[in-house]
Design a protein around this nucleic acid. Sequence first.
DNA 1: TTTCGAATTGACGTTAACGTCAACGTTAAG
DNA 2: CTTAACGTTGACGTTAACGTCAATTCGAAA
Lengths: 136, 136
Amino acid sequence: MPRDAVITYSIKELANDFMVTARTLRHYEEQGLLSPGRQGQNRIYTVKDRARLSWILRGKRVGFSLTEIGDMLDLYNLGDGRETQVAVTKKLCRDRVDALQRQMKDIRDTIEELEGFCEEVDSLVKKKNGEWIIEG
Amino acid sequence: MPRDAVITYSIKELANDFMVTARTLRHYEEQGLLSPGRQGQNRIYTVKDRARLSWILRGKRVGFSLTEIGDMLDLYNLGDGRETQVAVTKKLCRDRVDALQRQMKDIRDTIEELEGFCEEVDSLVKKKNGEWIIEG
DNA sequence: TTTCGAATTGACGTTAACGTCAACGTTAAG
DNA sequence: CTTAACGTTGACGTTAACGTCAATTCGAAA
């Protein structure tokens, strides 16, 4: 029972919730992607850490490496509004978006190809049946 | 100059065309993804090999592993029209398509987030300028 | 107080997808 | 004939993203 009303998670809780191992969370921390607080020696994860992890995992699913994800998370840590930094950040952002859009096209094409193949298989079977071929 | 009118490619030609190394093509062959003919000792790639390679690389771009891509290419080698095999093949196909569609959603979400962040950065700068803050 | 479960920190192992390098064969040009 | 360019087969190296295991430590329950 939490003494305060602050929602936190143990490493295993968070790991289970996101279907990853505790080792994975420690690894992400080693890589600087997460930095949970400590309660004594143990890690305690907040809701913000949760959101961050969610972002990380989605990044992975779309094919980014951990270092790339780290870079993207760093973008959020601007703080200083130096004009050049802002410009750089926005360019990186747009580059990412472009890459993702190219990836979407690839996926669409692959889906089409797979569905086309699926139909091909169907018609192949029907043809066989049409010629009264019961089994190959 | 080719003696016949059959279009073929050397390993380096193909590699250059697709912006990969020769080693990569040999690696794909080791993994059974490609099986070019030989002219003496040298590999000769046909137009079919080209198409296969194109498929492989697109598969990579959408996040499949080489073994997964190999499995998918094997689907095309049905030949035997055994009913069960056909069913299995179609299920694998559909599973792939589902996975790809989930991936598309992830990508769309990520794009949204990135664009949202981009605008956030913009408004942050304008605010600063509105308050006559030239530089952070 | 002992014991148990959950967490921690090293540190080394593993897999995928190539990179890199050595040693060698072939062919066309000078 | 010899050099260069291109190709070949091992075979070992590398990086990323964790897995795995050993040796603790800590807090709560029996």
